Simulated assay, not measured.
Amino acid sequence: MELRICNPLRRLPLLSSCSYQIKSSQVRRFSVRSCRLDPNESHKLVLQVKKKLEKDHQSLPVGKNGRDDEDMILWFLKDRKFSVDESVERLTKAIKWREEFGVSELSHDSVKSVAETGKAYVHDFLDVNGRPVLIVDASKHLPAVHDHAENEKLCVFLIEKALSALPEGTEDILGIFDLRGFGTENADLSFITFLFDVFYYYYPKRLGQVLFVEAPFIFKPIWQLAKPLLKSYASLVRFCSVETVRKEYFTDATVPANFRD
Rank of each mutant, 00 (worst) to 15 (best):
R11M: 13
R206M: 11
L236G: 00
S25E: 14
I95Q: 04
V145L: 14
S17E: 10
K247E: 15
I176Y: 00
S232P: 01
E160P: 00
E116K: 15
L37T: 06
R67M: 10
E99P: 03
P39W: 05
I5C: 05
L230I: 11
D188K: 04
V245F: 05
S19E: 12
K153M: 02
S235Q: 13
K247Q: 15
L236D: 02
D188G: 03
S87K: 02
E185W: 01
P204S: 09
S241F: 10
D252Y: 00
S190E: 12
V114S: 04
F125V: 00
N65Q: 12
R36T: 13
S83R: 07
F76V: 10
D71F: 14
S190A: 14
Q26L: 10
F157C: 02
F191V: 00
L229Y: 15
Q48F: 03
R180D: 10
D56F: 08
R4P: 00
H146T: 02
F239A: 08
Y203C: 06
A226M: 07
E160Y: 06
D109W: 01
Y249I: 05
L91E: 06
V111H: 01
S59N: 10
P143Q: 04
Y202K: 08
F194K: 02
A187M: 11
F182K: 07
Q21I: 03
E152N: 12
C155M: 12
G102L: 04
D172S: 15
T117Y: 00
V210F: 01
V49S: 05
V210R: 04
F219A: 11
L207S: 08
Q21Y: 15
L174K: 04
N7A: 11
I173W: 05
D124E: 14
K44Y: 08
R11S: 14
S59C: 01
I73F: 02
Q209K: 13
H57L: 02
K55S: 13
H148L: 09
F212L: 15
P39N: 07
P132C: 09
T170I: 14
G63V: 06
K23T: 09
Q21S: 11
L91Y: 03
V128K: 15
K51T: 13
P167V: 09
E99N: 06
E171F: 10
S87R: 00
V133T: 09
P13C: 11
K153P: 00
G102Y: 01
S113T: 10
W75N: 08
E243C: 10
E89D: 11
R67V: 03
P61W: 09
P167I: 09
A257Y: 11
S87G: 08
R80W: 08
F212R: 08
R180F: 01
D38I: 09
L106I: 02
A149Y: 05
E2R: 13
P221T: 05
S34I: 03
K247H: 14
V237H: 06
L47A: 05
L9H: 15
F177A: 14
G118Y: 06
V156P: 05
Q48I: 02
F101C: 03
V245M: 07
V49E: 05
N258F: 05
L174Y: 10
I95S: 06
V128L: 13
E86I: 03
D172K: 12
K140D: 01
L53D: 08
K220E: 14
D69I: 07
P39I: 04
D127C: 10
I5K: 11
F125K: 14
F191S: 05
V156A: 01
R11G: 04
L225K: 09
